[in-house]
Write a protein that binds this DNA or RNA. Structure first.
Length: 809
RNA sequence: GCCGCUGUGGCGGAAUUGGCAGACGCACUUGACUCAAAAUCAAGCGGUGAACAACCGUGCCGGUUCGAGUCCGGCCAGCGGCACCA
C-alpha cells in the first residue's frame, strides 16, 4: 500500500533540496527567457492571496519556459521608496530604511513559500545607494540632454501628501495615492520632457504584444490629434490670437472665440467697461481646484469687450474668457463653432451668441437647433467658396489650404504633458543638482554619485513646497562643482516612479559598480520577454518605463527601445462583502484580507498555487472563496494516488492509454500557451479521473504515461511533482526534462460520437467510424432517427466529425 | 458625455472556425463503508413534467442560418478608462 499524500513533509523536503540544488542553471548555451513580475512595495501588511496570483502565474510560466529548454531570468526586488514607509517614520520616529528592511524580510519569507524560483542573486532595492546611484545617473544624463528642466507653474498639489503630483497621478481630480482632492499650487518644479517622445511612444505601441486595452489607454493618454492653428487678428490692436482646432472645415461657422483665463492676453483684452468683470473672472478661476472645474457642468464666462476678425471671411467675432478652455493645451485659445461642437453650443445658448450651421445634416439646414451636429459628415453650407464641398474631405484638406492662404498652419497636438518629476518629500532619491549663483543649475559630477539621502531629524513634510531636506543646512550648503563658489543643493526628491522606470535593466547586472548594465549582459539577457502585473500601471509605470528605455537607447546604454515585449495583466483577487455578497478589493480596513500563510499550512503551497489558477480566468478579477481550496486538495490527493499506486504495476501501454497521454499533452500545452490557466487545471482534473478509471479497468497505467503526467504537472505543483518524479525512480530533477510533445496519430479515434439533429435539435448521439463518408454518416443518422421523422426531409447536412442534421417540413 | 470590457445553474466558471449549453470544481441530496462521525468511494444535481417523452432556457427585443452563448441591428444592466484636450 502506498503512503498517503503528506504535503507538509513533501514541501519542506523539496524546498530545502532546491535551495541546495537549484533547478534553473545557466550553461551558457541555452537561449534566455526573461520573465518579470512587477516588483512589490514592501508594505508592512505582507502579501495576501491577491498578490500571490500574479506571482503564481509568472512562476508557472517561468517553469514552463525552463522545461522548454530556456535559461530563465526570473528576478525579484523591492520598490521601496515611497510614502507609507515615510508616514510610518513620521508616526514612530523610526528611520524608513529600518522598517523597509523588516518588511522586505517578511515578504521574502512569504514569497519563498510559494516555491517561486526567483534568482535572489539578482535582487535589487530602489533605496539602496548602489541602485539609486544609477537612478540619479540617468537624471544627470537627461539633464545634459535637455530633457530635465526646471519650471515654475501651477502644478497639481496634494494637500494631504503635501507634495506635487504628475498628471498621471491625478485620478478623477483626486490624489492617486490618498484620494484627497488635488489643488493647484504655483511651484518651481523639475520636469522631464516626455512630450519629446510622444510620437515614438505612440507609434511603437504597434510593436508590442500587449493587451489591446493597455495599448489603447496609452494611446488615449498620449492623445495625438491633427488639425490647424489659425491666426485671428484682434480688432484695433497689433496682437493676433492663435487658436488650435481639429475642425478647420467649420471655420466659417465661428461666431465667437474663447480664451483660457490664464491666457497671456486675457486681461489685456478688457475695455474700461468690462475691466472689473474680467479681472474678477480671472481671479475666481485661479482659485478653483481641478475638482471644482470638473464638477461645474454649467458653463461660466465673461465677455472681454474686444473682437477678433475671422481671417477667412472677415467676420467680427466677440472674444470671451471661460475656464472650459484649458490654458496648457493647444494655444490656450479656441475658435467656437456652436453649431458643430457641444461645448460651444452650450456656451452660445447660455450667453445668447449666434449659431451658424456650416455642415448640412442629411442634406439640409436644421431649424431651431437643439444640439450641436458634431459629425464631419455632410455638405458645406454658409461657407463661401467652400460651399458644396464634403465636410469629411475638407476636414483633411483645410489645414493645408489655410497654410497656403497664410492665415495659419497645419499642426498636431498631444494631450500628453511633460512629467512633473520633483516631490517635496523625504523618502526618495535626492535630485542630483546644485544651484550655483554664477553657473546656474549644475549636475553633481557622475563620479560623485550616488548623492546620498542624508539622515534628517524630522521627516514631516513642510507643506510649504520645500522638502524636509531643505532644513539640513550642512547638506544643502555646498560648493559648485564647476566654479567652486558657495552653492545650494536641490532639496526636492524624485517620485517613486523613478526607480521603477528602469529597475528591470539592473537585475541582469545588479552588482556592477561601473555601469548601469554592461553592454555584454544587456545584449545577452535583455529585454524582458514577459512582464506580469496588475493593470493599474497602464499609464503610469508602463509609460514611464517605455520613455526611460527609449532615452537609454538614444544615449547608447541599451540597443532596444521597448522594455517589455509581452505584457500580461492578471486580475485582482477580491474578497466578498459579508452583507451584500459583492466583490470588494481586499484591504486591511475592510477586514477581508485572506493571508496565504494559513492556507499553506493546512493545504500546502501546491494546493494554493492550483487554486489561485483554478479560481477563474487569470486576466479577470475573481472572488476568493475559502471552500474551493478543498477541491484542488482532493484533486492533488487523487493525482498522488494515481501515480503512487500504479508505479509498480508494469502495465504495457494500451491504445487507449496512449490516446489519453497524447491528448493530455496536447490539451494542457494548448491551454497553457493561450494562458487559459484555469482550464489547464480543470483539464488535469479530467485526465486524472480518466486515468484512475482506466487504471481500475486495465489493472494499471503504463509508466511513461504516469511520467508524462508528472512532467506536465511540474510547473503548476512543483513539490508533489518533484516527489513523484523521485518515486518514479529518478535521481534527477523533474525540471531536467523536456516539455513533452504529442503525437497526432495516437490521438485519433476509430469511432467518433456525432449528434444527430432534426431541425437543429439534437435527438440522439450515434457512434460512427471516423473515416465514414458523408453518405455513410447520413445513412447511420437516418437509421437512428427513423422513428422520430414525422414529415418530409427536405435537406440533409453532415459536417464531418461535427454534426448530422435533418431538416424536416 | 465619450471609449472599452462583461452579462451563462444556488456559487466560481467551461464551450477552436456558428455544431450535444452548463465541462471542471464548490455547495447541496441520496447510497456504500462506520457503533457513530470525518475521510473516501458511488449516484444525482438549469426549469416545468410521473417520464430516459416533450417543451422552455446563455441580460432584453429583433434579424441572418439547417443550426446562434458565439454573427448582425437595436436596447438594458454592471465594471473599467478618459473626463470640458476644441
Amino acid at each position: 500500500m502506498s503512503v498517503p499524500y503528506n504535503h507538509r513533509a513533501i514541501e519542506s523536503k523539496w524546498r530545502k533540496h532546491w535551495e541546495e540544488h537549484p533547478v534553473n542553471v545557466n550553461d551558457g548555451k541555452k537561449p534566455k527567457y526573461y520573465c518579470l513580475d512587477m516588483f512589490p512595495y514592501p508594505s508592512g501588511n505582507g502579501l495576501h492571496v491577491g498578490h500571490w496570483r500574479g506571482y503564481v502565474i509568472s512562476d508557472v510560466w517561468s517553469r514552463y519556459k525552463m522545461l522548454q529548454g530556456y535559461y530563465l531570468i526570473h528576478p525579484m526586488g523591492w520598490d521601496a521608496f515611497g510614502l507609507p514607509a515615510e508616514n510610518y517614520a513620521i508616526k514612530t520616529g523610526q528611520h524608513p530604511a529600518i522598517s523597509t528592511k523588516k518588511n522586505v524580510e517578511n515578504i521574502k519569507r512569504q514569497i519563498n513559500e510559494i516555491a517561486s524560483i526567483y534568482d535572489w542573486d539578482m535582487e535589487v532595492n530602489t533605496t539602496d545607494p548602489d541602485f539609486y546611484k544609477w537612478t540619479q545617473w540617468i537624471f544627470v544624463k537627461m539633464f545634459k540632454e535637455g530633457l530635465a528642466y526646471e519650471k515654475e507653474f501651477p502644478i497639481n498639489w496634494c494637500p494631504s501628501c503635501k507634495t506635487g503630483l504628475a498628471n498621471e497621478e491625478v485620478v478623477n481630480g483626486v490624489c492617486e495615492r490618498c484620494g484627497t482632492a488635488v489643488t493647484k499650487k504655483n511651484l518651481r518644479q523639475w520636469m522631464l520632457r516626455i512630450t519629446k517622445y510622444a510620437d515614438r511612444l505612440l507609434n511603437d505601441l504597434d510593436k508590442l504584444d500587449w493587451p489591446e486595452k493597455v495599448k489603447k489607454m496609452q494611446s488615449d493618454w498620449i492623445g495625438k490629434s491633427y488639425g490647424a492653428e489659425v491666426d485671428f487678428p484682434v480688432e484695433g490692436r497689433e496682437e493676433k490670437i492663435t487658436v488650435y482646432t481639429t475642425r478647420p472645415d467649420t471655420l466659417h461657422g465661428a461666431t465667437f472665440m474663447v480664451l483660457a483665463p490664464e491666457h497671456k492676453l486675457a486681461a489685456k483684452l478688457a475695455v474700461p467697461e468690462t475691466r472689473e468683470a474680467v479681472e474678477n473672472y480671472i481671479f475666481e478661476s485661479s482659485m478653483k481646484s481641478n475638482v471644482d472645474r470638473m464638477q461645474d457642468k454649467e458653463k461660466t464666462g465673461v465677455f472681454t469687450g474686444s473682437y477678433a476678425i475671422n481671417p477667412l471671411n472677415g467676420a467680427k467675432v466677440p472674444i470671451w474668457l471661460s475656464d472650459y478652455v484649458l490654458a496648457d493645451y493647444g494655444t490656450g485659445a479656441i475658435m467656437c463653432v456652436p453649431a458643430h461642437d457641444d461645448r460651444d453650443f452650450a456656451f452660445a445658448k447660455k450667453f445668447d451668441i449666434p449659431i451658424i450651421q456650416v455642415i448640412a445634416k442629411d442634406g439640409k439646414e436644421i431649424e431651431n437647433m437643439t444640439e450641436a451636429y458634431t459629425e464631419a459628415a455632410g455638405t458645406m453650407i454658409n461657407s463661401g467658396e467652400w460651399n458644396g464641398m464634403e465636410s469629411a474631405v475638407l476636414k483633411k484638406e483645410a489645414p493645408m489650404m489655410i497654410e497656403k492662404m497664410g492665415i495659419g498652419k497645419k499642426t498636431v497636438n498631444f494631450k500628453l504633458r511633460d512629467w512633473v518629476f520633483s516631490r517635496q518629500r523625504y523618502w526618495g532619491e535626492p535630485i542630483p543638482i546644485v544651484h550655483c549663483p554664477k553657473c546656474g543649475n549644475v549636475p553633481v559630477p557622475e563620479e560623485e554619485l550616488p548623492l546620498r539621502l542624508p539622515d534628517v531629524e524630522s521627516y514631516e513634510p513642510t507643506g510649504t513646497g520645500e522638502s524636509p531636506l531643505a532644513a539640513i543646512e550642512d547638506w544643502v550648503n555646498c560648493k559648485c562643482p564647476v566654479c567652486g563658489a558657495d552653492a545650494k543643493r536641490e532639496t526636492n526628491t524624485m517620485p517613486q516612479w523613478a526607480g521603477s522606470s528602469w529597475y528591470f535593466l539592473r537585475y541582469v547586472d545588479s552588482h556592477n559598480d561601473k555601469e548601469l548594465v554592461s553592454k555584454e549582459k544587456a545584449d545577452k539577457y535583455l529585454p524582458v520577454d514577459m512582464y506580469i502585473g496588475g493593470v493599474e500601471h497602464a499609464v503610469l509605470h508602463l509609460l514611464y518605463s517605455r520613455f526611460y528605455t527609449k532615452f537609454l537607447y538614444d544615449i547608447g546604454v541599451v540597443d532596444f527601445d521597448e522594455p517589455f515585449k509581452k505584457l500580461f495583466n492578471q486580475g485582482m483577487v477580491c474578497g466578498r462583502d459579508k452583507e451584500t455578497g459583492a466583490a470588494t478589493k481586499m484591504s486591511k480596513s475592510l477586514g477581508n484580507i485572506v493571508s496565504p500563510d494559513d492556507i499553506v499550512r493546512d493545504y500546502g503551497c501546491d494546493s494554493l498555487r492550483l487554486y489561485e489558477l483554478f479560481i477563474g480566468p487569470p486576466e479577470l478579477d475573481s472572488i476568493w472563496d475559502d471552500s474551493g481550496i478543498e477541491g484542488v486538495y482532493r484533486f492533488l490527493t487523487r493525482f498522488w494516488k494515481l501515480v503512487t499506486e500504479n508505479i509498480d504495476k508494469n502495465v504495457a501501454a494500451t491504445k487507449e492509454m496512449l490516446k489519453v497521454r497524447h491528448t493530455m499533452v496536447h490539451t494542457i500545452t494548448q491551454r497553457l500557451e493561450s494562458f487559459s490557466l484555469n482550464t489547464v487545471i480543470s483539464g488535469f482534473m479530467e485526465f486524472t479521473n480518466k486515468l484512475l478509471d482506466l487504471a481500475k479497468r486495465e489493472g494499471g497505467i503504463d509508466k511513461e504515461t504516469l511520467e508524462t503526467a508528472v512532467i506536465l504537472m511540474a510547473p503548476f505543483a512543483p513539490h508533489i511533482s518533484e516527489e513523484l518524479w523521485e518515486q518514479l525512480g529518478y535521481e534527477t530533477s523533474v525540471f531536467d526534462n523536456q516539455w513533452p510533445e504529442h503525437d497526432e496519430e495516437a490521438m485519433k479515434d476509430d469511432e467518433i460520437q456525432v449528434p444527430v439533429q432534426i431541425n437543429g435539435k439534437t435527438k440522439v448521439v450515434i457512434s460512427i467510424p471516423a473515416e465514414a463518408t458523408k453518405e455513410q454518416a447520413l445513412e447511420a443518422g437516418r437509421k437512428a432517427i427513423a422513428d422520430r421523422i414525422t414529415g418530409n426531409i427536405v435537406k440533409e447536412i453532415y459536417v464531418p466529425k461535427k454534426i448530422i442534421n435533418f431538416v424536416q417540413k
